[in-house]
């Protein structure tokens, strides 16, 4: 039962940790040599690692607020829909993107943003805001690429996260909101003082989980940006993948070190966030 978990998660992680201290390569007959912290020393002065981490952080900053606040707003609105059929219809439509696998979402939006055939540019041109020459180049490593990716990631998570908040809202006793209304609280105050504190646990879990997934995004970047180092999608994750599987050298040891540096940096922030959220209970 735990065979899969140990075999394909715990062992590989430790194995990669060991690799990161060696000059390991797949295609070599001599055994890997222990090189101590050399890989880490090299990685910490490697400018690509820094830009990579910064780019990932930039994406996270673009992505997190939208993916948390919009679903919260939507959940508050949907919770008040009293018509039962309508409410469940809304929920079903909201969850459609959640049952579409990631890769399909990425390809869909790659088409949406496409310069020639994509409907987004078509609409912008029809509205007369742009001409066919000046229409924005969304993907392909321009400054617009990261915001564009962040926008569709928000779209993807919108419904699923709304469900989390709806579950949080459902746990608030009705008497409490009724009592607050009788005491003369307006809707805004009600939200701020009654609803919001009770949504905080859901909110903090989502923030931590989404932070983790946003920092380690890789498939989107591979599909959208490829291996062009100048593109803003060339983050530390892509660099690691590039070093380990694409470039001829196959520097797996070095790639492993970069992976661990990125993961450690993330874990520091996650630890900090968990500590912050815990102390407020």
């Amino acid at each position: 039962m735990m065979f899969f978990f140990i075999g394909y998660q715990v062992y590989p992680i430790l194995r990669v940790l060991w690799m990161s201290f060696t000059n390991y390569r797949f295609l070599r007959l001599t055994p890997a040599e222990w090189v101590g912290f050399d890989n880490y020393r090299n990685a910490l002065v490697d400018p690509i690692v820094y830009t990579g981490l910064l780019r990932a952080a930039e994406f996270t900053v673009l992505f997190l607020p939208g993916t948390i606040l919009l679903p919260m707003l939507l959940a508050v609105l949907i919770e008040r829909v009293e018509h039962e059929r309508l409410a469940s219809l809304y929920r079903i439509i909201l969850l459609i993107p959640a049952v579409i696998p990631g890769t399909l979402i990425f390809t869909l939006w790659k088409w949406m943003y496409d310069f020639h055939i994509g409907p987004i540019n078509y609409i912008l041109i029809q509205l007369g805001w742009f001409t066919e020459r000046t229409a924005p180049q969304w993907l392909g490593g321009t400054a617009l690429t990261l915001p564009a990716v962040a926008a569709f990631e928000v779209w993807w998570g919108l419904g699923y996260h709304t469900m989390f908040f709806l579950a949080g809202l459902a746990s608030i006793p009705k008497d409490l909101t009724d009592a607050a209304r009788i005491d003369g609280a307006n809707e805004w105050k009600l939200f701020w003082y009654v609803t919001m504190p009770r949504l905080l646990p859901v909110l903090s879990i989502l923030v931590v989980l989404r932070f983790g997934s946003a920092m380690s995004v890789i498939e989107e970047y591979l599909i959208f940006g490829g291996y062009n180092r100048a593109s803003p999608t060339y983050t530390w994750t892509v660099y690691m993948y590039d070093l380990a599987f694409k470039i001829g050298d196959w520097l797996q040891g070095y790639a492993a070190a970069i992976g661990w540096i990125g993961a450690s940096a993330m874990m520091c922030v996650v630890g900090g966030m968990l500590y912050l959220f815990r102390s407020r209970d």
Binding site: Y8, Q9, Y11, P12, I13, R15, V16, M19, F26, V208, L209, G212, M215, S216, I218, T237, M240, Y241, A244, F245, Q252, A255, A256, G259, W260, G262, A263, M266, M267, V270
Partner: peptide, 14 residues
């Protein structure tokens, strides 16, 4: 759940 498991373990899974 909090650790980027898939990403880090990729090299060893290969």
């Amino acid at each position: 759940l909090f650790f980027p498991t898939k990403l880090i373990s990729l090299i060893a899974i290969y």
